[in-house]
């Protein structure tokens, strides 16, 4: 090996060792488990595809997968749009205050998950702050279903948790587009909004895609938020996986569900990247 290759290998070593030992290896174990057979609440290393058959054909799990992808897609899309405009404003419109506004993004991550999830729990629910406030002001007479625990509550809370994860890559991508390029577009007849769509968005699209993908993956794997805000009905696939590894005592099925989720995400996001790359060209 050439000396600079050796240096590069050494530089890569900590991350590679960490990920192969603590992520790659467990993932392989998980994949192996997904082909095991369950007998009397225990599993034996006997090859079977039954777990995947259940994971892919069961009406119940399909409902969970579809709900999960719907919740994650909506959350990630809302975050991408909100994060784009937030980054736009702090990069261009309020340029003078951008350090402070960027700091606010980081501050919003300080709160800690538990404090925030219990805050959201007190807001949503039949007797939650949202419903009681609206009822006491007379705007509504009965508690709104929308503000009870369920999909809407999960989405709103997850937008709160993951918005910083969306802002960071978009903000970083926008630093490559100078205010002068926006002025150039305006000079050529674009409105501010037109310039944002035709110049800033394509140039920051990589960042927007990364923001969408990060938040999509993170929310699709969520189980605590839906457990605490989803009520009895609107659980996500993460809850089913957690159940199979816990009270359900069916690790092979849980593993098959987890592997299926990883594969579905990989296929969907691969397709997204391909489309985006085509579109930019």
């Amino acid at each position: 090996m050439k000396p600079n290759r050796i240096v590069a290998a050494l530089q890569l070593a900590p991350a590679s060792v960490y990920y192969s030992a603590l992520f790659g290896a467990p993932l392989l174990v998980l994949v192996a488990y997904s082909f095991y057979t369950t007998e009397n609440f225990d599993f034996v290393p006997e090859f079977t595809l039954d777990n995947y058959v259940t994971a892919w054909t069961s009406e119940v799990y399909r409902t969970y997968f579809i709900r999960t992808l719907r919740i994650s897609a909506i959350t990630a899309a809302v975050i991408a749009v909100v994060a784009f405009f937030y980054s736009y404003v702090i990069t261009y419109t309020l340029r003078a205050h951008r350090s402070l506004l960027y700091f606010f993004v980081l501050v919003s991550m300080f709160g800690g998950y538990l404090v925030r999830i219990y805050a959201w729990r007190s807001i949503f629910g039949t007797e939650g702050i949202a419903n009681s406030a609206l009822m006491s002001t007379g705007i509504i007479a009965e508690p709104l279903d929308l503000l009870r625990n369920g999909e809407f509550a999960i989405i709103i809370a997850m937008i709160n948790f993951y918005l910083p994860l969306g802002i960071l890559p978009i903000y970083a991508a926008m630093q490559n587009v100078g205010p002068g390029q926006i002025e150039a577009a305006q000079d050529l007849g674009s409105s501010r909004l037109g310039a944002a769509g035709k110049i800033v968005l394509p140039l920051a699209l990589r960042g927007v895609t990364v923001a969408f993908v990060f938040t999509f993956i993170a929310t699709a794997a969520e189980w605590l938020t839906p457990q605490l805000l989803g009520g009895t009905e609107d659980q996500m696939i993460g809850n089913r996986i957690a159940y199979q590894f816990g009270a359900g005592f069916d690790w092979p099925l849980g593993a098959a569900l987890a592997v299926t989720l990883v594969v579905v995400l990989a296929v969907l996001l691969g397709a997204l990247f391909t489309v985006v790359r085509r579109w930019v060209r």
């Binding site: 100078g178 002068g180 390029q181 002025e183 150039a184 050529l188 110049i199 394509p202 140039l203 930019v280």
Partner: peptide, 12 residues
């Protein structure tokens, strides 16, 4: 129309 000092072409 304005010709900018740093040109400000659209790189993409």
């Amino acid at each position: 129309n304005l010709v900018f000092q740093k040109y400000e072409l659209f790189p993409h």
